[in-house]
C-alpha cells in the first residue's frame, strides 16, 4: 500500500516535472511571441480583402451575426467581418508608420540630450515635460487638423505626440549606464569611447527601443481610431477601424449592436496582442528573466 502511494506520488512528480519542462518560462515566452506575431500577420493580410469588403449587397442588409456573416452585415449589406479585417490591417499599417517615426524621434532626442548634456539636455528635458503635461488628445486633434487630416495627418500627429516617454527612458538609460562602474572601468582598461558605446551602452539601449516601439503600436492604433472617429482622420474611402466605428455609431440606436461591438472587440484584441508581445520581448531580452 505504502509502496503504491509512493510510486504514484513519484509518478505525479514526474508528470509535474515534465509539464514544467514543456512549459518553462522561456518556451512560454517564445510561444506567446510567435502566437502574437502570427495573429498580427493574419490581421495584416486583411488588406487583400479591401475590395471585397467594400462590396454592397442590398438583399442582405442589417443581418445579425450568423454563420454566413459572423460579424453580421451593415445597412448596405457589407460583411462586417471582412470590413473589420481590412480595417484592422489598414490601422495596423498606419500604426506601424506612426509608431516607427515616433520612436525614432524619441531615440534621437533621448540620445542627443544625454550625450551633449548641459543646456541641450535642459532644453530637450523641458520639451519632454511640456509634451507630457499637455493632454494627448488635444494636441493630436490640433496637429491632425493643421497637417490637413487624412493619412498624413494621422501619421504626423501621432508621431509628434508619442515620442516623449520613450525619449525620457532612453535619456535616463544612457545617463545611468554611462556612470556605471563597469563603463568607467572599461575606459581605464584602454577601451575607446566608440567601443564602449557599441559594447556597453548599445546592448542596454536597443531592448528599451524595441520594446518601446512595440508598446507604442497600440497607442498609435487607438489614437488613429480616435481621431478618425471624430472625423479629422482617414476618409470613408479608407475603411480603417475608426471609420467603421464612427459609421456604426449612427446605427447603434436602431439596435444593430453588432456594428460597433464586434469591430470594437477586435480592435481591443489586436491592442492586447501588441501588449503581450511587448511584455514578452522585454522578458526575453533581459538576461535576468530570459533564463527562468
Amino acid at each position: 500500500m505504502n509502496l503504491e502511494v509512493s510510486r504514484s506520488s513519484t509518478l505525479w512528480c514526474r508528470v509535474g516535472l515534465a509539464r514544467q519542462k514543456v512549459f518553462d518560462r522561456r518556451r512560454q515566452t517564445l510561444f506567446l511571441i510567435v502566437f502574437c506575431v502570427l495573429c498580427l500577420g493574419v490581421i495584416l493580410a486583411g488588406s487583400a480583402q479591401a475590395a471585397v469588403a467594400n462590396q454592397t449587397n442590398l438583399s442582405q442588409r442589417n443581418q445579425a451575426p450568423s454563420w454566413a456573416h459572423p460579424f453580421g452585415t451593415d445597412w448596405l449589406g457589407r460583411d462586417m467581418l471582412l470590413r473589420t479585417w481590412s480595417g484592422l490591417s489598414l490601422s495596423l499599417r498606419v500604426g506601424f508608420l506612426a509608431a516607427l517615426f515616433s520612436s525614432l524621434i524619441g531615440l534621437v532626442i533621448g540620445l542627443t540630450a544625454a550625450t551633449l548634456g548641459g543646456a541641450v539636455d535642459a532644453f530637450f528635458s523641458w520639451w519632454i515635460d511640456v509634451f507630457l503635461s499637455l493632454p494627448h488628445m488635444v494636441v493630436l486633434i490640433l496637429l491632425a487638423f493643421v497637417s490637413g487630416g487624412g493619412l498624413n495627418g494621422v501619421v504626423i500627429s501621432v508621431a509628434l505626440t508619442h515620442w516623449p516617454s520613450l525619449a525620457r527612458v532612453i535619456r535616463a538609460e544612457v545617463y545611468q549606464v554611462r556612470s556605471a562602474d563597469y563603463v568607467q572601468l572599461s575606459a581605464k582598461l584602454g577601451r575607446s569611447p566608440s567601443w564602449i558605446a557599441r559594447h556597453h551602452i548599445l546592448p542596454h539601449l536597443w531592448p528599451q527601443f524595441l520594446v518601446g516601439l512595440i508598446l507604442l503600436f497600440p497607442h498609435a492604433i487607438l489614437h488613429e481610431a480616435g481621431i478618425t472617429f471624430i472625423g479629422i482622420g482617414l476618409s470613408p474611402h479608407q475603411p480603417a477601424i475608426g471609420i467603421i466605428l464612427a459609421e456604426s455609431m449612427r446605427h447603434l440606436s436602431t439596435g444593430y449592436w453588432w456594428l460597433a461591438v464586434l469591430p470594437g472587440m477586435a480592435l481591443l484584441v489586436m491592442v492586447k496582442l501588441f501588449d503581450i508581445l511587448g511584455e514578452n520581448v522585454r522578458a526575453l531580452l533581459d538576461p535576468r528573466t530570459a533564463q527562468e
Partner: peptide, 22 residues
Amino acid sequence: KKSYCPVQMIFQHPELAINPRW
C-alpha cells in the same frame, strides 16, 4: 587618459562593476 591605465581599481560592489548584459 586613453590607453590602458597602469593604476587599476577593484570595487567594493562587484555586482555593479560587471555589465549585467554581458
